[in-house]
Simulated assay, not measured.
Amino acid sequence: MADRESVKEAVRRLPSRERAILYLRFFADWSQGRSAERMGISQMRVSRRLGQTRARPRRETLD
């Protein structure tokens, strides 16, 4: 299992838009729809980006 610091570093390397989506969804507890409105994109795009964005740090820390 990846340690917390490795995951933090991987998240820090994400583009700012992806970090913002993660923050709004998981730390601010906003819905995907509300996050989409804030970001000016569709809810479906938020959903796709969340999937891709969550996978990237996981891959980096496990490699």
Rank of each mutant, 00 (worst) to 15 (best):
I41D: 03
E18G: 02
S6G: 15
Y23I: 05
W30D: 12
I41T: 04
K8Q: 08
L14D: 08
V7C: 02
E9G: 07
E18T: 06
K8S: 06
K8F: 08
L22H: 13
P15W: 03
V11T: 01
A55G: 01
E5G: 09
R56V: 14
R34W: 04
R38I: 08
L14C: 03
S42A: 07
S47V: 01
L50Q: 00
E37W: 01
L22M: 12
A10Y: 02
M44L: 00
A55T: 11
E37K: 05
R48E: 05
D3L: 13
A55M: 11
R49E: 07
Q52R: 15
W30N: 09
A2F: 11
R56G: 06
I41Y: 04
R19M: 02
S35K: 04
G40W: 09
W30S: 10
V11F: 01
V11H: 03
G33L: 05
A28S: 07
A36W: 01
S16M: 10
L14V: 07
S47G: 00
R49V: 09
R38S: 02
R12M: 07
A20G: 06
G51V: 00
R34L: 01
Q32F: 04
T61I: 05
Q32V: 06
F26L: 11
D29R: 14
S6P: 09
D29E: 12
E9H: 14
L50K: 00
V7F: 04
R48V: 13
L50E: 02
L24F: 11
T53C: 03
S6M: 09
R38G: 00
E5Q: 15
M1Q: 10
Q43N: 07
K8I: 09
D3G: 10
S42R: 02
R38H: 11
F27G: 04
V7E: 08
M39I: 05
S35T: 15
S35L: 04
R49G: 00
R4I: 13
R56C: 06
Q32K: 15
V11Q: 00
A55V: 07
S31F: 09
S6Q: 15
D63W: 00
R54T: 12
F26T: 13
A55C: 06
R49S: 06
R48M: 09
G40D: 04
Q52Y: 14
R13L: 06
V46L: 05
A2G: 12
R58K: 12
M1T: 08
R13N: 13
I41W: 08
Q32I: 01
E18I: 04
A55Y: 12
Q43W: 04
W30G: 00
R48T: 14
A2R: 14
L62D: 02
R4C: 08
R19N: 01
R54E: 10
A36C: 01
S31D: 15
W30A: 08
R56H: 14
T61K: 03
F27W: 05
I21E: 01
S42T: 15
P57H: 01
V46G: 01
